[in-house]
Nucleic acid binder design. Structure first.
Lengths: 228, 228
DNA sequence: TAGATTGTTAATCGATTAACAATC
DNA sequence: TAGATTGTTAATCGATTAACAATC
């Protein structure tokens, strides 16, 4: 009873911190996982079978200590005196990230960005399944993007009822974000990837990632202006 | 003399930390500036003239303390008993970010993503000037995107020599990233915004921002899988 | 003036790095 | 076995929050 209280307290206190096997994983560690995944993929392509935290740290420009700490939040995948088996580590991190779960996605908004995202092969390569594209413009509805026929946004609710979707990708104008997000969540979507300029917040318990392309350009601009 | 040494040491020790008026600004603060800028823009659109750190903190889901600390790295823009003048703050942050410097950009790679970026209005709204688009495919060269005629990548070096560009935006396949980046830097570009899957690193003193669209999708996937 | 709210210092919290015993 | 390298604890560093005097 008391331990349950402590546990809840932990969740509240941790804020955005996420749990893995009961362990609290700092968000900053989670955000590093895709980067590890990327480098490990490259190592595999280069035929590297095993790697030490030290060798990896040199390639990735992080400390070996951090690498070992990070992996240990998930149980530690290495072997003393040997290092890490690259393929195994790659698999494990893919597992942790849910890349082997075949999450189904739908893109809402088939403008320039929506089309680019639909054609973005990396999403598929990472195991995500694009199942639908929606738009409200008669010019686009009915056209085929990446082998998928664009549907009218009006049929979205019905479609979601019949075809469960895990992730909604928002590439709609700022004005439409909030309503679209609500409808996707009502339709059972578990997570939202938002590319619109508006920052998305939701009451309901749904995962959200906001991506702001112009933020990166502005950060770059700062670096240039202030002379790095 | 000694203080110069201390100063240099500071830069080295700070790693990626950037300086503003001699003050060391933590990278994490810089990355928050575009977000402030976004919210302030929204306040202006809503006709809000002034705001306290407290009121802003509620909207943005950060602490008022952090807001005041952040702004103070740049000198503090508020007034005791009053708060912050929204328009003034917006201007100041825009200044700090270099948004009023009219940085000229060129996009390399006119595939789906490159085209989406060329049409991404927010870049323009933030004061960036798109001056050229390059590609190597005969199918695209000569076509017009967002009012700009796509040039062949072969003429890029000559073009850069005649028309200074500040920021190179990379939307090329992974295999071409490194060479393209080198050529842009040789052509005098001061910063690179890289959207390709490969992580870009440069020897030379040039600002870099890597954007990995799939990283956000993977982070979202983790949140869904581990139940936030 | 009194009330509000900043700018700034001090305290706390969290994340990174260092160190080393465990062990393959 | 001896050497290498992890997993993990302890030390350091940095970032966030709290508190309050300064001041508009």
């Amino acid at each position: 009873m008391f331990s349950v209280l402590l546990y809840k307290l932990e969740i509240i206190k941790g804020g955005l911190a996420l749990n893995y096997n009961g362990k609290r994983v700092p968000p900053v560690v989670i955000r590093r996982l895709p980067r590890y995944y990327r480098y490990l993929g490259e190592l595999i392509r280069n035929g590297v079978m095993r790697i030490s935290s030290n060798a990896l740290s040199e390639r990735m420009d992080v400390t070996a200590s951090q690498i070992r700490q990070d992996f240990n939040y998930f149980g530690g995948f290495g072997q003393q005196g040997y290092g890490y088996n690259v393929e195994h580590l790659y698999m494990e991190i893919g597992d942790i990230l849910g890349l082997h779960d075949g999450y189904r996605t739908a893109i809402v908004g088939a403008g320039n960005l929506g089309r680019a995202l639909a054609n973005h092969d990396t999403f598929e390569k990472r195991g995500f399944k694009l199942r639908a594209i929606f738009d409200n413009s008669p010019d686009v509805v009915g056209t085929t993007i990446h082998g998928i026929e664009v549907m009218h946004i009006d049929v979205m609710d019905d479609f979601l009822a019949e075809n469960p979707i895990d992730i909604g990708i928002l590439a709609v104008p700022r004005s439409a974000v909030s309503e679209t997000a609500d409808r996707l969540v009502a339709g059972g979507v578990k997570g939202l990837l938002n590319f619109s300029y508006a920052e998305l917040k939701m009451e309901k318990d749904v995962a959200i990632e906001n991506v702001h392309l112009s933020d990166s350009l502005m950060t770059l601009s700062y670096k240039i202006k202030q002379g790095e």
